[in-house]
Design a protein around this nucleic acid. Structure first.
Length: 912
RNA sequence: GGGCUGGUAGAUCAGUGGUAGAUCGCAUCGUUCGCAACGAUGAGGCCGCGGGUUCAAUUCCCGCCCAGUCCA
């Protein structure tokens, strides 16, 4: 980045000079001619610890100081956005204040909600998860205080000089000595944009970054600037993107050993007490170690793997043994991490994330389980829900949508689930440990992979459990890459089969979309603009193209010479393609068109019903209910929602009743195009249920109390929807429940079909429908009882049969060879009874074919061998154990001969 | 959406191509003033559902359902 970008008039007129840091080489601006380094870690240790650089502020005081300062200086204060970036489909969590305004405001498509503006935006970043609690400064959730100015041609707000001036003035307003502040030059690149930026440093701490976004990836006539080898071009919109770390300001204002002590003193002290380490805090030496560690830990670049090296270094610097440092620090690290994680979870859950194994829900679960593990390691009794609730209240943030009771329920749910997983895991590991101890080898790495991949048991836990069983574990360093290898597969991307038409379609004028203005019309006339591969392009159409979960319309085109069927309609850019079968159509021809009315009306009913059901589900289940997908059909439709447990039958009924009440209220459905930012402010991000539509304006559909951005066709009023019947519930995947339903006539058909099934079933057992459950229950019980009775009787019969059997003695062994009138099961019973007392039985029964059973109580005679021989003669097969064997054969007529062979074989066995 | 693991008695799980098992729990009896413990006896199973292979399937194969888990 060019040096002149940083030659600000403000710097030169306010006595700042440009210096170069001997440690890192970076250029920086300072008022202090004697300053030695740039002032950033690791060039300089934290100087503010024990020696604050601002007047003491609490979190709340600092936030207010910032926002009101910028309000006084012409900025409009904005409410924070949710930590889940629901207005974007490229990221799950809000990672910076500027993320609130991407992509449409930053690209200039949509005007900003205010200009200039100020905001304190809670952001979540999980990429340094391992450093949280250890480094003394990392957080999963932090508030990025910001002032933004969006400059465009003809609308210049302010640029670099004013930004730095505001920064200086704000720092001074909270008590900073400006002589200690340095501005470090630092070219910024991120998310397809770039520009010069300065880092604001004081007391060794970077407290803010001022970014001047003026480069983008959109090609222009200006020469490109190369950054990291990538070309960037000047933009017409230039954005002041500042980020002031609220927590860092608070920390620097208090000079506490770690950021955690400054930011959540209440939680930290609660946890210290709970963990029973409050006594050691009064020990001076102990405190000293903590403070020194904090001071130098900040200088180290922490990434999980080299933590131990870092610790050794710190131990060396502050002059204690590695083990002492480790012993003192470890519990505090965990405790700090818990303090941080619970606040992160409070915002995640408060902003309605549902923990699950997908998307942002997975991230919430990740943080939650990590917190539980650390609580467990510190032997913290007490429930997580309580801590999170405490964080929610301490935050003083009134904008959480989720109710406390549901947050508690979700957390308790997750805690219980994790306990179950670990419990189950513990048993599996125990079993494995026993197996491998017997073999006298350690548990192999492959087993660890299976345990983690299939059962979610992390190897650390396997090691612990195995150790308790006195068994060691083979824990390879590349464990997680082994896992990654298991899952690395090329993702086959679904290709839109119509993109090959893109070039041809690009030259065509946009199709006029009649279906929006005339949702009730089903017939129209139009001119054929183009015709190729059976695809008809019209100048205007009522055919709704597939999109937003609503299937395409079908229908007829009537030409001068005949009729053509439209099977499918799709949208490609601004052009709508009608896919046809049948006759050839000529360009320029006028056609009459007719949509399949019943189908379309049913689709509209189902679509409007989807909105109603979503609202009803939200009312019944809680404000975390979001649409996770939907598919409309003309027979039935599906609505997938995010929810943390299974919907109960009782809840289904309540949702159904509520939905139908909204239908009966027969309120008008209102549809209007609104400017994006305005709509977001008016209705919130609940608007985006079926994905985030592009563009400056969005189509806002209001159905009763539900308001969504939606491009589909809808009924005029809720009354037109007709009855809504939930058909079935399905658990699609963790955290997502599917509601399948029918609306209008489809609902009636469904009810009729169900009624028919009930009637048929009732008729079979000859009872009234009302009595069906009781009758079926009775029959089932009776059937079970009778089965048992039959079994008992068969045993009895077998006993009687045995008494009547012909017994011949071969040597001193009792042998029975006989054909009986009995079931195969009975034969088995009899044979068993005889072999049980040392005898040998060769039994058969005839029913079309011959069943043969041999029981042998004598080791000299192998029952299976006898059966094989006998069945072979009978033209069949058989086998079994030496004690009992069975088989069949077709040749009933050869039974006598078969018996003789059998007798010979038994005799041979006994005499052999 | 894809991969993997599992589904057997009320619970936890063995097991097997040829008569379904263990432990705990439960019931009854015994021992005891009573309880725990102990001893004896017993009840309790569509071996998830549906197909296929086989003389024979709880067991092998395919599909589905349910639960769990990892990765997108």
């Amino acid at each position: 980045m060019m040096e002149e970008e940083y030659q600000l008039e403000y710097f030169t007129t306010h006595g700042l000079i440009r210096k170069s840091c001997p440690s890192c080489g970076a250029a920086y601006w300072t008022r202090d001619p004697d300053r030695a380094t740039c002032g950033d870690a690791p060039c300089e240790p934290y100087a503010f610890i024990g020696n604050p650089v601002f007047r003491p502020h609490s979190l709340k005081e600092m936030r207010e100081a910032f926002l009101s300062f910028f309000e006084r200086h012409g900025h409009t204060r904005l409410e924070r956005y949710p930590v889940v970036a629901r207005w974007r489909d490229d990221i799950y969590l809000t990672i910076a204040s500027i993320a609130d305004f991407q992509p449409y405001v930053t690209s200039g498509v949509v005007p900003p909600p205010a200009n200039p503006l100020t905001i304190s935006q809670p952001c979540i970043r999980l990429n340094d998860l391992d450093a949280v609690g250890r480094s003394g400064r990392h957080l999963t959730l932090f508030e990025m205080m910001a002032h933004h100015a969006f400059n465009s041609l003809g609308n210049e707000i302010y640029w670099k000089n004013e930004t730095v001036a505001l920064c200086d003035e704000f720092l001074a307003s909270i008590g900073a000595d400006l002589a200690r502040v340095s501005y470090k030059e630092h070219p910024w690149v991120g998310g397809g944009n770039a520009g010069p930026s300065v880092e604001v440093l004081i007391g060794g701490l970077e407290v803010a970054t001022l970014v001047f976004m003026n480069l983008g990836k959109v090609r222009s006539s200006d020469p490109p600037v190369l950054l990291d080898g990538e070309p960037y071009y000047p933009m017409t919109t230039r954005i002041v993107d500042t980020g002031y770390g609220l927590e860092r300001f608070v920390w620097a204002s208090q000079g506490s050993p770690t950021i955690y002590d400054a930011v959540f003193p209440e939680i930290v002290s609660t946890l210290v007490k709970k963990a029973g380490i409050d006594a050691s805090l009064s020990d001076r030496e102990f405190r000293n170690i903590l403070a020194l560690n904090a001071k130098y830990a900040g200088m180290m670049d922490i990434h999980g793997t080299n933590l131990l090296q870092m610790r050794e270094k710190v131990a060396g610097i502050i002059g204690v043994s590695f083990d002492d440092l480790q012993r003192v620090i470890t519990p505090f690290e965990k405790l700090y991490a818990i303090a941080d994680h619970t606040r992160c979870l409070a915002y995640m859950l408060g902003d309605c994330i549902v923990p699950s194994n997908v998307r942002e829900g997975y991230l919430a679960r990740l943080v939650l389980r990590r917190t539980l593990r650390m609580m467990n390691e510190l032997h913290l009794d007490g429930d997580l829900a309580e801590l999170i609730e405490m964080q929610l209240q301490l935050s003083g943030d009134a904008s959480f949508e989720q109710g406390l009771d549901i947050v508690r329920e979700i957390v308790d749910n997750e805690v219980e689930r994790y306990a179950l997983t670990l419990d189950r895991g513990g048993r599996i590991v125990q079993k494995l440990a026993t197996t491998y101890r017997q073999k006298n080898i350690p548990i192999p790495a492959q087993e660890l992979v299976t345990l983690y991949d299939s059962h979610g048991i992390p190897p650390e836990i396997v090691r612990d459990v195995a150790a308790r069983e006195g068994e060691s574990v083979e824990f390879p360093d590349d464990f997680y890459s082994m896992i990654a290898g298991l899952h690395s597969r090329s993702v086959t991307e679904a290709e839109n089969p119509h993109t090959r038409y893109a070039e041809r379609v690009a030259s065509l004028p946009p199709t006029q979309k009649l279906y929006y203005d005339q949702p009730d019309d089903m017939e129209f006339e139009a001119e054929v603009i183009d015709y190729f591969d059976g695809i008809v392009v019209l100048d205007r159409t009522l055919f709704y193209p597939e999109g937003g979960g609503q299937p395409a319309d079908t229908g007829l085109l009537i030409t001068g010479t005949g009729m053509v069927r439209v099977d499918h309609t799709i949208k490609l850019g601004d052009v709508i393609l009608h896919q046809t079968k049948g006759a050839v159509i000529n360009r320029g021809e006028r056609v009459k068109a007719k949509i399949d009315e019943e189908r379309r009306r049913s689709l509209m009913r189902h679509h409007t019903a989807t909105h109603i059901l979503l609202r009803a589900a939200k009312d019944v289940l809680g404000s975390h209910i979001h649409q996770a997908g939907a598919q409309k059909g003309s027979e039935s439709s599906r609505l997938d929602i995010r929810h943390y447990k299974h919907i109960t039958p009782d809840e289904v009924q309540r949702i159904e009743i509520l939905a139908n009440q909204m239908v009966m209220e027969d309120s008008l459905v209102s549809i209007k195009w609104e400017e994006r930012t305005r709509a977001e402010q008016k209705y919130g991000f609940e608007l985006y249920q079926g994905g985030v539509p592009p563009g400056k304006e969005i189509r806002v559909v209001r159905v009763n109390r539900d308001v969504e951005a939606c491009a589909g066709t809808h009924c005029r009023s809720t009354g037109e929807v007709g009855p809504i019947k939930i058909i079935r519930l399905e658990h699609v995947q963790d955290g997502i429940e599917r509601i399948e339903f029918a609306a209008g006539s489809a609902a009636i058909y469904y009810l009729q079909r169900m009624e028919g099934l009930l009637n048929d079933a009732a008729q079979v057992v000859s009872v009234q429908v009302e009595n069906l459950p009781a009758a079926v229950q009775r029959f089932f019980t009776e059937w079970k009882d009778q089965r048992k009775e039959i079994e008992r009787l068969q045993k009895k019969v077998a006993e009687l049969e045995i008494a009547r059997l012909n017994i011949e003695m071969i040597g001193d062994v009792r042998v029975t060879i006989q054909c009986l009138d009995a079931t195969p099961q009975q034969l088995v019973n009899i044979a068993n009874s005889i072999s049980g007392s040392g005898g040998i039985a060769l039994l058969a029964s005839k029913d079309g074919k011959v069943h043969v059973v041999v029981g042998s109580g004598n080791t000299a005679v192998n029952a299976a061998a006898i059966v094989r021989k006998v069945c072979e003669i009978l033209g069949g097969k058989g086998g079994g154990s030496p004690q009992l064997a069975q088989g069949t054969g077709q040749r009933v007529d050869l039974l006598g001969q078969a018996f003789e062979e059998g007798r010979a074989a038994i005799r041979a066995g006994l005499h052999g």
